[in-house]
Design a binder for these strands. Sequence first.
DNA 1: AATCACATTAAAGCAGCCTTAAACCCCGCT
DNA 2: AGCGGGGTTTAAGGCTGCTTTAATGTGATT
Lengths: 225, 225
Amino acid sequence: MRILLVEDDLRLVAELKPQLQQAGFAVETAHDGIDAEFLGREEAFDAVILDLGLPGKPGLEVLTEWRNAGLDMPVLVLTARDAWHERVDGLKAGADDYLGKPFHVEELLARLEALVRRQHGHASSRLQVAGLVLDNDLQRVTDQQGVEHPLTGREFRLLRYMMLNADRVLSKNELSEHVYEEEDLRDSNVIEVYINRLRQRFGKRCILTRRGQGYVLPSQPEHGS
Amino acid sequence: MRILLVEDDLRLVAELKPQLQQAGFAVETAHDGIDAEFLGREEAFDAVILDLGLPGKPGLEVLTEWRNAGLDMPVLVLTARDAWHERVDGLKAGADDYLGKPFHVEELLARLEALVRRQHGHASSRLQVAGLVLDNDLQRVTDQQGVEHPLTGREFRLLRYMMLNADRVLSKNELSEHVYEEEDLRDSNVIEVYINRLRQRFGKRCILTRRGQGYVLPSQPEHGS
DNA sequence: AATCACATTAAAGCAGCCTTAAACCCCGCT
DNA sequence: AGCGGGGTTTAAGGCTGCTTTAATGTGATT
């Protein structure tokens, strides 16, 4: 899951970012409204944490512009604890949830995960696609025969993203954007290597190649071509 | 075991806290309803002792809010001895047990331990998981061969928490939160050291490492995959 | 056939974990 | 107070296993 953290307080960012990463998110950051608006518009995020008190451009304005541009990723707004009018404005502008500062990181994580799950239409931490059962908490997958496969961090992130977006062609670029934080992987074949690993674990049929396009995880095994 | 003690009478807290710690609990305290509600919601406790006569926010309200938020930790309510209606209200609001003031500390401890055991589905002070038998009273463990292992305090707490939460990945962070009172152990490797001790005692297979995630105590030995 | 895109494999690089030893601390004892 | 011992914590280096690179193989496309 790739998220955008928009916050100008660098101390807070330094505290939050590692914990978000720990929780399995790939985190990009923006420190002012201009950057935030640009990043959110130009890149693909699964969720956004947006502080309203920003230099450059007000957070609310950023949010409004995103929504006007047709972007529908879930946005969690950070407000001062007692500024209830900000919350109302935020929700009107298209925020999906809000949290008053100061807050506990655990709550932020919980709300964030709830948002992402809601977005992808999954109520639980388990995900069933293509005959596989993926357990978010234990970071492992059970196959059709009931065999459990403990996965490494990257294997797990990649497979999860593919299961969340089954039956869609996913370019290597899109995949690496959602599995990594840095993006300069143009001249790397990591994704190919990890696709190969997953195939070794779950069978070659499991993931199809669309030459020149990307990869697909069919939700039910395909016959023929 | 980490518990939250909610009590505004500081004399009573001063008396209780050491005894609870003596009994092997890590104790956090709150002195009014606001703090209590917040702490209970945001942090993980294995049990709560809740006095109803609180400043800030009534104890019952605190309890109700916790339950509405989906928290299910056992709560032991302290009431005035003769205020039976408070008990009824307490139980309705989701309390698991109650105790009239004044009381004997021994009784509080006994009820508390009963609650914690019940929560984790154990009726006795003995805990059998993963081929080990842990004796809460004697603070020792018997292995499959019937060999008795006297454990030190920390070893014991760590192993108990892992046995209570077998088959779940436990991060070093979660472990230290439940084994220690202070939490600033970010730059310490105590947990690694104690995991190592337990493995030396009970065999390496006993505890599995999920790199980057934490540790698991499988309830029955796993066969590789 | 030449080229391109992907597959496969081995090995280097690296981060996190394991292990050990020594320092520390608390308590009971002399 | 000084001492001793068990328990606890710190610190350092080695080690394992995940990640990434890079080199080579294979099949499609021109």
